[in-house]
Amino acid sequence: MRFDEFVCFEATIPELQAADRDGAITELIAALVKAGKISSESAKEVAKAVIKRENEASTGMGKGVAVPHVKHAAVKHVLAAVGQSSGGIDFASLDEQPVYSVILLISPVNNPDKHLQAMENVFRHLQKEKFRKFLRQCRTPAELEDLLKEADENPSW
């Protein structure tokens, strides 16, 4: 599944205000509300669910990236927001290092296959050092959008 099929480009944050994990998750969900992708009523509940999931096992996979996620009825299609933190955020990552790029993923409850396909795309790119580096270098939402679309056009890059 391509980035442009599930990333909300109106919910990319080149510099997160939050300096902690739960704050970053809440900030990204707020961006999705602002973009009109989820209702403000469900935002709190979604944040709670993502944080609960994160407390069960960190999605900080190492190498400065985290992919907090949850399956929730608030969405009908897989939806993602992307945030960067130049200062780094403690995500209790596997490698105990700070996280600089956060991809927040919300998937519908009744379509596990789509969730896996989105995850496949996220990790295929995130495991490339070049992609992680470029991601961290993005300074504006437009640059983030360009990078993700470029990744879509060059799957092997």
């Binding site: 896996l116 496949e120 996220v122 990790f123 295929r124 995130l126 495991q127």
Partner: peptide, 12 residues
Amino acid sequence: SIMQMSMLAATC
């Protein structure tokens, strides 16, 4: 590798 295993998109 958890990152690599997450790339398999292994559905039911």
